[in-house]
Structure formats: structure tokens, C-alpha cells
Design a protein around this nucleic acid. Structure first.
Length: 663
RNA sequence: GCGCCCUUAGCUCAGUUGGAUAGAGCGUCUGGCUACGAACCAGAAGGUCGGGAGUUCGAAUCUCUCAGGGCGCACCA
């Protein structure tokens, strides 16, 4: 509702000014919130209009106030020095709409959106860095779906790269395991943990003797031949680890629709098709000399002149060696960026080829996750060919991402490039204290740092499942002591919901560009600005209704529970400001979700959820509800609780957080 | 060397398109449970928004500059 009113206000303001001053070019009106509720609900700074209208801000504000006329949902306007127009919402009108859960129609842009996230190398257990990626991506998907968009979720699997090859080397060269041995191991629980340790050992083994790196090269080469035994082993390992990753993410209610794999990009000749187009369009040039002799290269993103300033002749200008990105190596093999270009052409439906598909993993509620395959099943959903994409990939890969975008531009697909968003975020590192707790010896230099980067190669990091286990155990202890009368399975269920709430909120409360310095103490906290804080507010609200013998879901819909006159009586006036703030905050769900999408910043939603919960807790303490003697007043207070509860549950759900019945 | 990002309270971070007195959480100190559950609330202390210059009616926010930190810049992914 808040969003709707804001739009209406902006539109009417513009109309009013245009009527008064026909033909004058005016800046867009900025609508913000006043620092205090006492001042009003919207504040419009009039200063930007002073110059073009050659008049004092206060005078203009006064004129608008007098001439804008009646606006539905707006009660009054006040001019405030030095030049604001403060607008008050018609509180009873807004509250009635909110109580009835009215949703004004919003224009939904057409076209499907593809969100790619997680994309964990299938060679070892997922760690906290991967959790940040998956939680950001999954939350963004939920934001888009809340806004009415159709979304496909993809998780790109690099199953033919060095990382998988390294673990294969570990099994075959260090542990000398047979294919049957490995197959047996993959059936063990948490096979990904086994690989985590083995991967670290392999890195160690390479460091011991550079000759050992020969094994990596041979293995890497053998994997590319789909018929080889090595390829079969790699497939065995990568599929088993991938399955573990899906299980881990499933614990957090994170699901995928499709898992495109690099092996299919290779074997279904996506690259060959892309390569031909890239050569034809001149995006790729062949280097005849220099250090990149024999390679096909393109200009690295962000180097050289902007494409718009180059002459239209399209001559392939010389790219200095420094600015060259090798796409095809001199031995004829294609690198990661090249495969990514082909993949992204496919995403936008620009390649003219498709994957084979088969079912891979079934989520509860009969949702299937599909995986790429060479042959594939006859009937399958249609993937790719989308209007917009978001790639949740950490900030370190921004240059590679931009190179892919530039390749699309070079191919003439500007529209696709414009709808390609690198959803960039910073890594999760460990505080020195946390690293020490994990048993790592730190150099003096490291101790002085504010954070230390995790390293899969060294086996240095916090595994996702371990963190979840710890969170659940910690929450379980609390629930056990608070609710001894509840059955153990139920207590575990509650503890799990709390753990997920804590984890997801923790990963979402930081803005994307902030490096998270991970610390168990903070991550395991259930107090203050945390998920459980918000969950607790809902539990309290639910509890009130339980004791009142009413259903919070239907309370407001039941006709006559709270009449318009009661809303007005309880909401209008200075004394009601505090409760009104709570209603106002509850009205902002769509507004905040729009902002989060437009800025690709889920933290904005997290902040809002916390603020709403905080306002509710304050209200809760100040206003005893069940003991309220005035029955009409009591009904109003209950309606307030019902509305806040509904919006908290809604916004938490967008963050992937559910609320237990008690906690 | 080039490119991107960061520097706000003791610590960890918000601060949306430049707007009214810069905000949270944690920690510290002081209070509040005969309960609509204290995983909570009230209050206190704590800030030259890294330094400097500029643009503007107005700058934590934009520009320039200096200092400090991080991350990229492979025929790796």
C-alpha cells in the first residue's frame, strides 16, 4: 500500500506542477520519509524546484499544498521550513486497506528470469562462502517471485575442471583406489567430507614434488575423453558430491530447477557453435606472434577505449598483449571464459543448440531438479531462452563476467548484454580468532588482519553442514530447557527452524560489498539483530491470539471485527503515533521488496524485517492486550498484532525463514 | 603499474535517488519478569563519518587529491 500511495503522490505532484507551469522542464520529485512520524509520512524536498520555477521553496510548497486537491489516501499536507512539503497519510483509510490485505495491482514486466547461483565445484564439501552465495541467490529468487516474476534457478556445475581432476588424482594416485572402491565410498554418508580432506592432501602432495603435477595434467586430459575410465571415475565423484551439495542446500530450503554441466557444454559442441560466431563477428582475433602466439584472444573487459567511442568501421584494432584475454589456447582447447560465453548465449536463446535433460533430484512436494545430459529424456521442461539473467558470483570474478558481457555485445546482442546482471558479492572470510579456534596456527601478520580468507585447497574453512549442525545443536539446547513438555522430535523441528533463521539472517544482514568476517560467536547468536529475534516477535503475536482464542489468519477478514471508526479513533492523534508507525512499517512490504530487487540488495529487506520486529516488540511491552478493558480498543490492538504478524511472516518467507509455533 | 571495492561509536555494520538533530546490533554501566513467554524492553555513556580541497541552498553520500586496507589483472576456474 505504501508503494502504491507513493506512486500516486508523485504523479499528482507532477501533474500539479505541470498545470501551474506549462512547458517548464522540471526535475523528478524525490519522495522520502521524514525523520520523525510527528512530521508526517512522506516528505518532499521542494528545493530542486526553486531554480527552474524561480521561486522560493516555501512559496512553491504552499502553492502545491493549496492546489493539488484531494488525493485518495492522503489526509493533509504541511509546509515545513526550510522547504519541505510534509504529507500525512489518511491513517484510517490505510489501516482498513491493510487489515483487508488489499493489494493494488502492479505492472509486472513480461519475460522469464534466470538466476544462476551456488555453482560449487563438485569436488569437496560446501563451506560458508558457498552458503552466502546460495542464500543470496535463493533470497533473490524469492524476491523476484514475490514480485510476480517467473524465475528459473540454475546451478552451474564445473565437472571437468582442475578441481575435480585433483580429487580424482587423490583417489587414483595417492590412495590407489579402484573404481569399485570409490563407488563404495560415494555411498558413505558425507562423502563430500572425505573429498574435502583428500583435496587438501592432494594440494600438499603437489607442493611436495612438482613432478606430481604431471598426474593432474594427465587426469585433466583423460577426463575430457568421455569414454575413458578416468572420466567415469570423475563422473562418479562429481555426481556424488553434487548430490551432497543439493542435500546440504535442501536443509536450508534452497532448491534448483536445472543443473547445466560443463561436460555437456563440451560434448554437445556448444563451444564449436559459439566459436564460429565469435570468429565471424570479429570478437575473437588470432594472435600470430608474441606471448599469446597461436591463441584466439579477445579484449579484456574494462581495458582500452569504450566501444561507443570507436569508429564505426569495425576494424579489428590491435589489442596490446596486456589487454588480451586468451579464449582458445594454442593447443586448441577452450578456457573457462569461452565456455561461459557459449553457456550465456544458450541462456538467452542465441546459440541454436540445447542440452539433453534428465531428472536428477526430487524435492519434497514433487518438484524435480533436472540435470544436463547428452541423451536426455523425451519430455522435459523448457530451460534457457530467457529475457533477463542474474549471476550470483563473487566479486573476484567480475572481470571474467564483464568479458562475457562484452562478448555478447561484440556479437551484436546488446539487449541481452543489457539484461545480464552480475550479482556480485564479497567473500566470507574468518576472523583470526575463529581460525585459531579451528586449530590453525597463524603468522603474526595474519593475527593482525581483520580477516583471513578461507582456502579449499588447504582444507581451511568451515563446512556448511558442520555449521548447520552446530546451529541446530545450540538452538536445541535452548528449546529443550524452555519447552520440556514438547516432544523431542518437535523440539528438533523447532531448533532446526531457529537455526536456519539464524543462518539465513546472518548471511543476509550484511550488504553484498561487505566482506563477512565469520565468527562462531556472532553466527551462533540468537539475540539482537538476528533471525530468531524476528521469529520470536511472530511467536509472541501467535501466542497472544492463542490465549485470546482467536485465529490471527482470519481475524481481520472477519467482518466487523474492527470498524473504520474504531481505526480512526485509535490511530489519529499524537498519542497514537507509536502504533501508527507500526502500521506504516507493515504497509511497506511491496515497497521494500521493489527496492531490494532494483538495487539487487537483499540486506535491505533484512533490515526492514528487523525494524518491523523491533517496533512490534516495543509495542508489545507498552500495550497489554489481553487485559485491555475497553473491548473496542482490544479488538483494534488485536488487529494491529494480526497485521504485523502477517507481514513479518511474509517478509521472513521471502528470506527463506519460517516461524515455529513456539520457541 | 592498471582496474574494481572499502575506510562511519570500543567491536561488527546500516545509512536507498545528495536533504531536517548521523543510526542499529554487540560489548560496558543502570533498571525492568506474580508472563499477552526476558531469545524481550527502558535508560546512560560512546562519533573531527580516514585527512584535505571543491561542487551545491544543502555532502557520510557527488568530483579531485593524499593516506591506509582488500580483491582482480594465467594458454586456472
Amino acid at each position: 500500500m505504501y508503494r502504491h500511495l507513493e506512486h500516486r503522490l508523485a504523479q499528482r505532484l507532477l501533474e500539479c506542477l505541470q498545470r501551474r507551469h506549462p512547458g517548464v522542464a522540471l526535475p523528478d520529485a524525490v519522495i522520502e520519509q521524514p525523520p520523525k512520524v510527528e512530521l508526517g509520512d512522506f516528505a518532499i524536498p521542494i528545493f530542486p524546484f526553486a531554480k527552474p520555477l524561480r521561486s522560493a521553496p516555501l512559496k512553491i510548497a504552499e502553492a502545491i499544498r493549496a492546489e493539488i486537491g484531494q488525493i485518495e489516501g492522503i489526509a493533509e499536507m504541511q509546509v515545513a521550513p526550510p522547504g519541505y512539503l510534509n504529507v500525512r497519510i489518511d491513517r484510517a483509510w490505510m489501516a482498513a486497506a491493510l487489515a483487508a490485505d488489499q493489494k493494488p495491482p502492479a505492472a509486472i514486466p513480461p519475460g522469464k528470469i534466470l538466476v544462476e547461483h551456488s555453482s560449487i565445484n563438485p569436488n569437496k564439501a560446501a563451506h560458508i562462502g558457498h552458503l552466502r552465495n546460495a542464500i543470496l541467490g535463493d533470497t533473490f529468487v524469492r524476491l523476484l517471485r514475490f514480485a510476480g516474476r517467473e524465475v528459473d534457478i540454475q546451478n552451474y556445475i564445473d565437472n571437468t575442471g582442475v578441481q575435480v581432476a585433483d580429487v580424482v588424482v587423490g583417489f587414483t594416485h595417492i590412495e590407489k583406489k579402484s573404481r569399485a572402491d570409490i563407488e563404495a565410498l560415494t555411498r558413505q554418508p558425507r562423502f563430500d567430507y572425505y573429498c574435502w580432506d583428500l583435496y587438501a592432501r592432494v594440494s600438499q602432495w603437489y607442493a611436495e614434488d612438482k613432478q606430481n603435477l604431471q598426474a593432474r595434467l594427465q587426469t585433466l586430459h583423460a577426463i575430457e575423453d568421455a569414454a575413458s575410465d578416468t572420466a567415469a571415475v570423475a563422473e562418479l565423484i562429481s555426481v556424488a558430491v553434487l548430490r551432497r551439495h543439493l542435500e546440504t542446500m535442501d536443509r536450508l530450503d534452497i532448491e534448483y530447477d536445472f543443473l547445466p554441466r560443463e561436460s555437456e557444454i563440451l560434448h554437445l559442441h556448444f563451444w564449436d557453435t559459439a566459436f564460429a560466431k565469435l570468429k565471424e563477428s570479429g570478437v575473437l582475433t588470432f594472435e600470430g606472434e608474441g606471448k599469446n602466439k597461436g591463441c584466439w584472444v579477445m579484449r579484456r573487459a574494462g581495458t582500452g577505449k569504450a566501444s561507443s567511442t570507436t569508429e564505426d568501421t569495425g576494424d579489428t584494432e590491435e589489442i596490446t598483449e596486456e589487454d588480451q584475454k586468451v579464449i582458445v589456447r594454442s593447443n586448441g582447447t577452450v578456457g573457462y571464459v569461452g565456455k561461459d560465453i557459449a553457456y550465456h548465449m544458450w541462456k538467452f536463446g542465441l546459440l541454436g543448440r540445447d542440452f539433453g535433460y534428465r531428472k536428477f533430484y526430487r524435492y519434497p512436494h514433487t518438484h524435480d531438479c533436472w540435470i544436463s545430459s547428452i541423451e536426455g529424456e523425451k519430455d522435459h521442461p523448457h530451460f534457457g531462452d530467457v529475457a533477463e539473467i542474474y549471476n550470483v558470483i563473487d566479486a573476484r570474478q567480475s572481470e571474467a563476467q564483464n568479458t562475457v558481457i562484452e562478448a555478447l555485445r561484440g556479437l551484436g546482442h546488446n539487449e541481452a548484454a543489457d539484461h545480464y546482471t552480475h550479482f556480485s558479492y564479497e567473500m566470507v572470510a574468518l576472523t583470526p580468532r575463529c581460525a585459531a579456534e579451528l586449530g590453525y596456527t597463524l603468522s603474526e601478520e595474519d593475527k593482525a588482519r581483520s580477516y583471513i580468507e578461507v582456502s579449499g585447497r588447504k582444507g581451511f574453512g568451515v563446512k556448511a553442514d558442520d555449521l548447520l549442525d552446530q546451529l541446530i545443536a545450540s538452538a536445541k539446547k535452548e528449546v529443550d530447557s524452555r519447552h520440556p513438555q514438547v516432544s523431542d522430535p518437535e523440539r528438533l523441528q523447532i531448533a532446526t527452524q531457529i537455526a536456519i533463521g539464524a543462518l539465513r539472517y546472518f548471511m543476509l544482514k550484511y550488504t553484498k560489498q561487505s566482506v563477512i568476517a565469520f565468527d562462531f560467536k556472532e553466527a551462533l547468536s540468537f539475540e539482537g539483530e538476528t533471525g530468531p529475534y524476528a521469529q520470536y516477535a511472530v511467536v509472541r503475536a501467535t501466542s497472544i491470539f492463542r490465549k485470546a482464542g482467536a485465529d490471527p489468519e482470519t481475524f481481520c477478514k472477519d467482518a466487523g471485527s474492527v470498524g473504520a471508526s474504531d481505526l480512526a479513533k485509535n490511530l489519529i492523534g499524537e498519542a497514537a503515533n507509536e502504533i501508527w508507525e507500526l502500521w506504516l512499517a507493515s504497509s511497506k512490504t511491496s515497497y521494500v521488496i521493489d527496492q531490494s530487487i532494483a538495487t539487487t540488495e537483499p540486506a535491505y529487506l533484512a533490515k526492514h524485517v528487523f525494524q518491523l520486529a523491533q517496533l512490534f516488540n516495543t509495542f508489545y511491552h507498552r500495550h497489554p492486550i489481553l487485559s485491555e478493558p475497553d473491548e473496542k480498543r482490544k479488538q483494534f490492538l488485536l488487529a494491529t498484532v494480526a497485521v504485523v504478524r502477517r507481514e513479518l511472516i511474509r517478509t521472513l518467507a521471502v528470506m527463506g525463514i519460517t516461524v515455529p509455533p513456539v520457541m
